[in-house]
């Protein structure tokens, strides 16, 4: 297995001496040739997970192995096999040109100048940026800078690429190019790619597998098609005119209701006729509307993340 993440736990101590449990025992693996998207609201622990995999944050428990090399026991071997583009960082020397950046970042990863230059040229050509290789990075557009940062992370031909919010704040054109390129990396070259995003469209077009992370826990994990198929056409919104009785609420809960307010809930149904079971359960509470939601990933994600309690474990979701 290319990447194995085994029970990572991270507790931060904040300045006012409180403990934030950012990641609570995350476990998953990533095969070569696969794009895995981590979806989750802000503060869910996506960046912390990525940084623990890159060895930049030290976990309180658990370990990471890249192609069998443990990050805690053989960090050098693990780091040789991964590249990362981090969020909120420049990742590049702005005063240098892309080519000079490649020479530097390649050099401190053990590449000769010649190899770093050749590889850098090739990567820039693949992005169609070969004419920018000699301008300083600060002169490039935001989108180009991000593409160059991806090239720099790939300079030593790693097997695993970590991308934290790779298309955040980029124009459509750059975002499309990056998405296209990332797919080629995985599907033509067999790289493993772990990316985080809260842009559903990105995950929907890019991912092979999807993990939803909430408050430091993976609450849903599976093939994108399975995740989508599971929800397509079967996610319903119920809006009630008043709060139902405790008994009615309990009955609805048993059928899988996820309350998004006192008088509103979402539910994922196996069969369309199950709607009537719910209606019977709610009787005699007046209903304002019942609506079937079109399930794209955004709906799945929204419906899923609004539930306060994780409804299914990763294993079930994959079935």
């Amino acid at each position: 297995m290319l990447l194995e993440v085994d029970g990572l736990v991270k507790r931060y101590r904040t300045k006012d001496r409180q403990v934030v449990e950012a990641v609570k025992g995350i476990r998953f693996s990533l095969a070569a040739g696969t794009i895995l998207a981590f979806l989750g609201p802000n503060g869910a622990g996506k960046t912390t997970t990525i940084k623990m995999i890159a060895g930049l944050v030290r976990p309180d428990d658990g370990d990471v192995a890249v192609e069998g090399h443990s990050l805690s026991a053989a960090s050098g071997q693990a780091l040789r096999r991964l590249g990362a583009v981090l969020e909120g960082s420049r990742n590049l020397y702005w005063r240098l040109t892309p080519l000079e950046n490649f020479e530097y970042w390649g050099g401190i990863r053990g590449l000769s100048r010649k190899m770093a230059r050749e590889r850098g040229r090739e990567l820039m050509r693949e992005f169609g940026l070969e004419d920018k290789i000699g301008s300083t990075v600060q002169q490039l557009s935001r989108g180009m800078q991000q593409q160059v940062a991806i090239c720099a992370a790939l300079i030593h031909s790693p097997a695993l690429l970590l991308l934290d919010e790779p298309t955040l704040g980029l124009d459509l054109d750059a975002s499309d190019r990056i998405q296209e390129y990332v797919q080629r990396l995985a599907h033509e070259r067999g790289m493993g790619i772990l990316l985080t995003t809260h842009q559903m469209e990105v995950a929907q077009t890019l991912a092979d597998r999807i993990s939803i992370i909430q408050s430091g826990v993976l609450t849903l994990e599976g093939l994108k098609e399975d995740v989508l198929a599971r929800f397509t056409g079967s996610s319903y919104v119920f809006e009630l005119a008043e709060a139902p009785s405790a008994g009615a609420r309990q009955l609805a809960d048993q059928l899988g209701a996820a309350w998004t307010g006192e008088q509103e809930f979402r539910v994922v149904l196996d069969r369309p006729t199950d709607v009537y079971d719910i209606m019977r359960a709610l009787e005699p509470c007046p209903v304002v509307r019942v609506m079937r939601e079109t399930a794209d990933l955004a709906t799945v994600f929204r419906a899923h993340t609004r539930q306060s309690v994780p409804v299914q474990s990763g294993r079930e979701a994959m079935a």
Binding site: K51, A54, G55, L56, S75, G76, Q77, L79, R80, L82, G83, A84, L86, G88, S89, R90, N91, L92, Y93, W94, W105, I108, R109, G110, A152
Partner: peptide, 18 residues
């Protein structure tokens, strides 16, 4: 400040050596 420190720490040689 410039957002390159973490990339330096990704070097397999280790930051101490770099």
């Amino acid at each position: 400040q410039n957002g390159t420190l973490e990339q330096v720490f990704l070097s397999p040689y280790g930051a101490t050596f770099i």
